[in-house]
Design a protein around this nucleic acid. Structure first.
Length: 262
DNA sequence: CCTATAGCCTGACGGC
DNA sequence: TGCCGTCAGGCTATAG
């Protein structure tokens, strides 16, 4: 599930439910999801500290704790957050429960356990460790900067868009939407794109991500003129009516209109 | 150096 | 009904 728009919504949810509360404990912690930190150190970094603010970079969510450290959450394919009154049921695949001092807790739920949790001093440490590129919605990433980064890649433009080292935040489904709107075939080598096309790609990337956030990161609630509501078996192109097709691009399934995206 | 591929983990679904 | 293969909006280590 979680690409940039999803994580942006998780951030809003966390801000609304859990910010400014103090963590009184961590329960149901699955140590297998911790990266570069022991369970003891993870608990110690959180317990007794307040969630001060949150910040998103690509598909990562950071929560600043008083004292200056940051909780880091990545959601893999199936992760999400769920706030509940303490003592009430939390979803079965909960991998960590942050108990808060207002009687609620924030559950980190991750069915397939492909996400991970850690603690860092500053977000920049994590960004450097994973060599993440700039956030796809960073205002500093203008069309020229994006062109500069994408042109480094000779891979298919879809792979380049999904490469977190070039840009952070885009995954399999939003790359399909961005390419559909730009009328670009996913297999086009990124280094082949001319300046005008790169400019359109940048504009559509921002448009698609912002619209998805506005629609709560629910692809089916995007306008009917978008690809994603039709991205399923027997789906048809909302522009020309041609049946949508799939192909594999670096191991992922790309959906496209073969007539509009040539 | 680069890009493409298998593996990680679990549940849902279709075909036999 | 039960079993098996395939697939799913992720990342990363490894192979070529």
């Amino acid at each position: 599930m979680p690409e940039l728009p999803d994580v942006a919504c998780f951030k809003s949810y966390l801000d609304a439910t859990s910010l400014h509360r103090k963590v009184t404990g961590v329960e149901r912690l699955n140590a297998a999801l911790l990266r570069d930190v022991s369970p003891a150190a993870f608990r110690k970094a959180l317990t007794g500290h307040r969630f001060e603010s949150s910040l998103r970079h690509g598909k990562y969510l950071f929560v600043r704790l008083d004292g200056g450290k940051h909780l880091v959450m990545h959601f893999g394919m199936t992760g999400f957050l769920k706030s509940s009154k303490h003592g009430s049921e939390t979803p079965d695949p909960t991998q960590a429960e942050f108990l808060l001092d207002d009687g609620y807790h924030l559950a980190y739920v991750c069915q397939r356990k492909l996400g991970h949790l850690t603690v860092v001093g500053e977000p920049q440490e994590l960004i450097e460790r994973h060599e993440l590129g700039p956030d796809a919605l960073d205002n500093a990433l203008d069309a020229a900067a994006m062109a500069e980064r994408l042109s480094q890649s000779r891979a298919a433009v879809k792979s380049a868009l999904m490469n977190q080292k070039l840009l952070a935040g885009i995954g399999n489904i939003y790359s399909d939407e961005i390419l559909f709107q730009t009328r670009l075939h996913p297999s086009t080598p990124a280094s082949d794109l001319d300046k005008a096309t790169l400019r359109k790609l940048h504009r559509n990337m921002r448009k698609v991500l912002n619209k998805a956030i506005e629609r709560d990161a629910k692809p089916n609630q995007l306008p009917r003129t978008y690809l994603l509501p039709h991205r399923h078996e027997d789906g048809e192109c909302p522009r020309c009516g041609h049946p949508l097709e799939t192909l594999k691009v670096s191991g992922r399934t790309a959906w496209l209109c073969p007539r509009c995206q040539s």
